[in-house]
Computed example of a mutant assay.
Amino acid sequence: MTFRGATAVAGVSELHYPRGGAPAGERALVLEAILAACRDAGISPRDVDGFASYAGGDNSGPVLAADLGIRELRWSSMVWGGGGGGVAAAIGAAAAAVVSGQAECVVAFRGMAQRDTGRLGYAKYYFDNNYLPHGVATPAHVCALRTQRMLEHDGVPRSAMRNLVLAAYRHAQQNPDAAGYGKPLDEAKYDASPLIVEPFHLFDCSRENDGAVALVITAAERAAELAQPPAYLLAAAQGAPGGYSALTENDRHYTSAGFAAGDSGAGVASRLFDRAGVKPGEVDVVQVYENFSGPAVASLIDHGLCPQGPAAGEFMTVENLTAPGGALPVNTSGGNIADSFVNGMGLAVEAVRQVRGTSRNQAGAADTSLFIGGPMAPLVSSVLFGSDRTL
């Protein structure tokens, strides 16, 4: 079986609303997003025969299949572990189902309506007796511990985090759909914002939204005949280094976002690039999951896109991170921080837009578009999209 270029994203959609402000519950939002993604692809929703998601939820494949009236359900999967770390893995699972002949048209999706499910800020599914007795009760606490170690031990300057945030807000000013649209951010306002948990200021933290996102994945040949330019999947990878686990806080690779090589010499990032036949320096644009800015910087370092230590500050400038002229445009819709947060899946839609050439902050002719899933989780994942020129 050949994975590289065998499948493509043919349709996308995203819906997002302020937290608690969705006009319907999570199931209705997911169905609306799937219907919109099918319209974008130019297919009937009855043509869908598989579903893939992550991070839990009650909207399983059989439930959605019945609601949509599909002809036959052939694939239904959920990525275990990691919360948003599994977002790119869900897209990879959908592609694997198509490549292996298990299904022909799979939707990768995520929906959130926090009046139904409660807030993600307190992740009770994630924290156990290693955490709670010590006052560690939120993702912000865990990621702050690891980020502070990255700053103090590895020497990554705080400016790298700040500039990632400022670039996201700069992109949001060109995106009328973004929550940060019309709310520009500068260094003074960022620095004056309150600390949430050191070293994270208010603006280092992702938003919380209601909404739903869906991507239609099908065979490359079929996608090429549909309504939109295909975004081909060049590679996908998931996992974590041996000895790495946010559930113990004793792992050796403590400042990694989870994508770096472990003792085996392999890792999620290196496997991704090896499978794609692409080097980190050949990536045109990146959408990196920033639950908080520090883990996003660690993700870029893990993928070889940003140098380690003090040199990270020299690379992570607002100019380098901003489209269209930056050396590596990052989070061109505004990202989880300045656009919206539907457990990170909206970043995948923006990655596809870059390949299509339809982003509001287009990074030139983006032939390679990387989507990095949620960092510093027990399981992480990435997927690399490409245009037809990469095949």
Rank of each mutant, 00 (worst) to 15 (best):
M1T: 14
M1A: 06
G5M: 07
V12Y: 00
V12I: 06
R19H: 08
R19G: 10
P23L: 07
G25A: 02
E26Y: 02
A36L: 07
A36I: 05
A36C: 05
C38W: 07
A41D: 09
S44N: 06
F51G: 03
S53Y: 03
A55G: 15
A55R: 10
G57F: 00
V63C: 06
E72N: 04
E72C: 00
V79N: 09
G84P: 15
G85A: 05
G86V: 13
V87P: 02
A89D: 13
A90M: 00
G92T: 01
A93M: 09
A94M: 08
A96K: 02
A97S: 14
S100T: 09
S100F: 00
C105N: 05
V107G: 03
V107H: 04
V107R: 08
F109R: 11
R110M: 07
G111M: 08
M112Y: 14
R115A: 11
G118P: 09
L120E: 11
Y125I: 06
N130D: 13
Y131M: 05
P139Q: 07
E152A: 14
E152H: 06
P157Q: 03
P157R: 14
R158T: 10
S159M: 03
S159P: 00
A168G: 13
Y169D: 01
A172N: 04
P176F: 13
D177Q: 00
A179R: 14
K183P: 09
P184Q: 04
A188P: 05
Y190K: 00
L195D: 01
L195I: 02
I196S: 05
I196E: 09
V197F: 12
E198H: 04
H201A: 08
L202S: 11
F203G: 11
D204Y: 13
S206N: 07
R207H: 13
A212Y: 14
V213G: 02
L215I: 10
A220Q: 04
A224Q: 01
L226D: 03
A227I: 10
L233V: 07
A236V: 04
A237T: 08
A240M: 01
A240R: 09
A246K: 09
T248A: 06
H253V: 03
G258I: 10
A261M: 15
G262S: 03
D263P: 11
A269G: 09
R275P: 10
A276D: 15
G277Y: 03
K279V: 15
G281N: 03
D284I: 10
V285H: 12
V285L: 14
V286E: 05
Q287D: 11
P295G: 04
A298R: 12
I301C: 05
H303T: 05
G304P: 08
G304E: 14
L305W: 06
C306N: 12
G313D: 06
V318S: 11
E319K: 02
P324I: 09
L328A: 10
P329G: 00
N331T: 09
S333I: 01
G334A: 02
N343S: 10
G344Q: 06
G346S: 07
V349M: 06
E350R: 10
E350V: 12
A351V: 03
V355Y: 03
R356Y: 01
T358G: 01
N361S: 02
Q362K: 11
A365Y: 00
A366T: 10
D367I: 02
T368Q: 08
S369I: 00
L370P: 15
I372G: 13
G373R: 01
M376A: 06
P378Q: 06
T390G: 04
L391A: 04
